[in-house]
Design a protein around this nucleic acid. Structure first.
Lengths: 121, 121
DNA sequence: TTTATCACTATCCTTTTGTATACTACTTAC
DNA sequence: GTAAGTAGTATACAAAAGGATAGTGATAAA
């Protein structure tokens, strides 16, 4: 445990340098619903009520709130068609699409994790 | 917008199939502190107070709570050395190390995001 | 005329998450 | 005897996140 006691003082810088950008990413993607919404839009542009149907369990309030945040972070684009009744289409921006690899990695890990849980029980 | 109106009914299954594992992953990694703690341990085994120093802003209570959750999910291992005073060493399990690629992806995106924000302002 | 769809908003409430502060018990160093 | 370091716990509180339910206003279909 000597190695523990004087664990590299220089890791501090490296470590913090790693933590900060991860924290930035987490801030933009925080909450229970943002990633599910983005995933839903990865499969195509959708209207409000369509997203609501595809994301299991979300309420209108949450969907509305999260879409606004995603829009303000330039991950999602909102397009209003002035038909009757008004139709609003949501789509991923190019920047939103840059999250695809993050989501794929997370999903792969999640799949493995779920398998692991099944075996354990 | 016709294409929007009848957006593939079959995306439902695919979409939900993607959302569920991501949700599993998010559950294990949820909260403000779990990933920062894991990152800190990626740089080497650490004692309680060392982690507290390396994760900017965390309180003892949160660190203690999150470590317990990470331990119960088999991501972190807790080893007590009965020296005087007692020393407790935390380390990533093999399973914990499997998160490295997730974190790397998230960090890369975070770095790009931070750059983007700087340019915008 | 009631009902349904569109895309939301408003209000109230509970749960979760996080913070602040103080405290434990032990030992070494000053 | 007092402070500092070891690894936390206890209590109280504040803030944020999320859920439940209802309502808006336009239109169209039964």
């Amino acid at each position: 445990m000597e190695k523990t006691k004087e664990a590299n003082p220089h890791t501090w810088g490296e470590c913090t340098k790693s933590i900060l950008p991860v924290r930035d990413a987490l801030e933009v993607l925080s909450g229970k619903w943002k990633l599910p919404i983005i995933i839903s839009l990865m499969f195509g542009n959708k209207r409000f009520s369509q997203i609501a149907k595809e994301v299991p369990g979300i309420t209108d309030k949450m969907l509305s709130k999260e879409l606004r945040e995603l829009e303000s972070n330039d991950l999602v684009k909102r397009t209003v068609y002035d038909s009757i009744p008004v139709v609003v289409e949501y789509s991923l921006t190019e920047y939103g699409h840059s999250l695809e690899i993050v989501i794929k990695t997370l999903r792969d890990w999640g799949v493995a994790h779920r398998k692991r849980m099944m075996v354990a029980e």
